[in-house]
Amino acid sequence: MENGNIKIETKNINAFYGEKKVLHNIDLQMEANTVTAFIGPSGCGKSTFLRLLNRMNDYIDGFRKEGDVLINGVDIYSKNTRIEELRKQVGMVFQKPNPFPKTIYENVVYGLRIQGIKDKQKLDAAVENSLKRSALWNEVKDDLQKNALSLSGGQQQRLCIARTLAVEPSIILMDEPASALDPISTAKIEELIYELKQDYTIVIVTHNMHQAGRVSDKTAFFLSGDLVEYNDTKAIFTSPKDQRTENYITGKFG
């Protein structure tokens, strides 16, 4: 792996909820403009690890981590990092669509409004741009003032992606973004991920192995808080090196 391309790097990550240790010594390097998938059975620590990358665990009582997370070579847990700036760089899409109970328009411009941007033209442009990139524009362009909660689940999730894109991050973290959606919406989201990879570094958690196979370039397999295997997705699915990986992808457990 050439070092110049490393976007995200974790070193010796251990994570704890209270006394319980849920991640053991995770070292991982993720490349720019690739899609990295985290797979593994439920409860193995995928979400915890993902949320370390934008410090979303910071507000959880009793959470503690050891080790470093570097993004563009910079330690994001250092005293000099402003957490708000970090999160503008590292956007996040959650498992359940979570649009605000506001209009579609206001959802998309939320991240810009909190940056103090008021210029109507700028906001309008951002709305159109982001909704186009999240493949939602054609469906909603005539009712931007409609409440976001009136959209279908799949549309809501694409709106959440649009909202994240509007902030112009360079990394997008997705925690099982399609697990609450129907197959057609899921296919749309997967297609979208494929498109977005041109411009973004994407990390996606999924416990759907086929999805990992379809959308990702690299795959990391987690089991009970350990990183068991990390490799090109193709290699993981065709010639896993670890017996446990093979067991998992052939459906012997999990």
């Binding site: 996040m92 939320y110 991240g111």
Partner: peptide
């Protein structure tokens, strides 16, 4: 989830 959505976009 709404809080996290907001934090996730860089809100204080």
């Amino acid at each position: 989830s709404l809080r996290e959505a907001s934090y996730g976009m860089g809100a204080t």
